[in-house]
Amino acid sequence: MTKPMRGVFAVPTTPFNEDGTQNIEALTSRVEAVLDAGVEGILCLGATGEALALSDEEREAQIRAIVDTAGDRANLVVGCMAYTPEQMSAHIANAKSWGADAAMITPPFYGGLEPEAAAAALHAAMKDSPLPVMVYNNPHSTGTDLLPEHLAALVDTGRLWSVKETSGAAGRVRELRAELGDDVDVFVGADGIALEGFVQGASGWVAASAWLLPRQCQALWSHAREGDWAAAVELWNDLSGALAQIEDNPAFISLIKQALSRLSIDQGPVRPPLPTADSEALESLLSTISALAKGN
Rank of each mutant, 00 (worst) to 15 (best):
A33F: 12
A37K: 02
R64I: 08
N23V: 05
I24K: 02
L35C: 03
V31E: 01
A61L: 13
A70V: 08
E40T: 15
L43K: 08
A37E: 02
A65E: 02
D68A: 14
A51M: 07
L43W: 10
R64Q: 14
V34Q: 09
T48G: 07
R30H: 10
E60L: 14
S55F: 06
A47H: 11
R59T: 03
E40L: 15
A65R: 02
G46Y: 15
V67A: 05
G49S: 10
Q62E: 14
D36I: 05
L27A: 04
G38Y: 06
D68I: 03
Q62W: 04
I24W: 03
G49V: 13
R59F: 04
I63L: 13
R59H: 11
L54A: 09
L43S: 10
S29Y: 00
V34I: 10
S55Q: 07
G49Q: 11
A70N: 04
R59K: 11
E50L: 02
D36H: 12
L27N: 03
S55E: 08
T48F: 10
A51Q: 11
T69A: 06
E25F: 05
G46Q: 15
E58S: 07
C44D: 11
A47T: 14
I42S: 00
V67W: 02
L45A: 07
E60Q: 15
A37V: 00
A65V: 00
T28K: 04
D68Q: 11
E25L: 10
E57G: 10
A26M: 13
D36C: 12
E58I: 09
T48N: 11
